[in-house]
């Protein structure tokens, strides 16, 4: 069991960030919210471990 990592883990953080912002280009607020929701669900599934997901939720609430 691994814990949630909060240390740098992305090989190209600037690229990943730019891709996230670009995905929202030209979207209405509603469309952006829907996109974000889908993205969260996809990443949650990729993580899988419910313990890590709960740690991420708690970290986000901080």
């Amino acid at each position: 069991m691994t814990d949630l990592t909060l240390d740098p883990n992305m090989t190209a953080p600037d690229d990943a960030y730019a891709a996230l912002i670009a995905a929202h280009d030209g979207l209405t607020r509603e469309e952006s919210e829907a996109l974000n929701a889908r993205l969260i669900l996809i990443l949650m599934n990729h993580v899988g471990d419910p313990r890590v997901i709960l740690q991420a939720i708690e970290t986000a609430k901080r």
């Binding site: 929701a37 889908r38 669900l41």
Partner: peptide
């Protein structure tokens, strides 16, 4: 509502969302 709709949207092509 947004997350519910996201699950329904994803369920069409992403198998992981179907049991949700």
């Amino acid at each position: 509502r947004i997350f519910r709709d996201a699950v329904l949207h994803l369920a069409r092509h992403a198998p992981f969302a179907r049991p949700m």
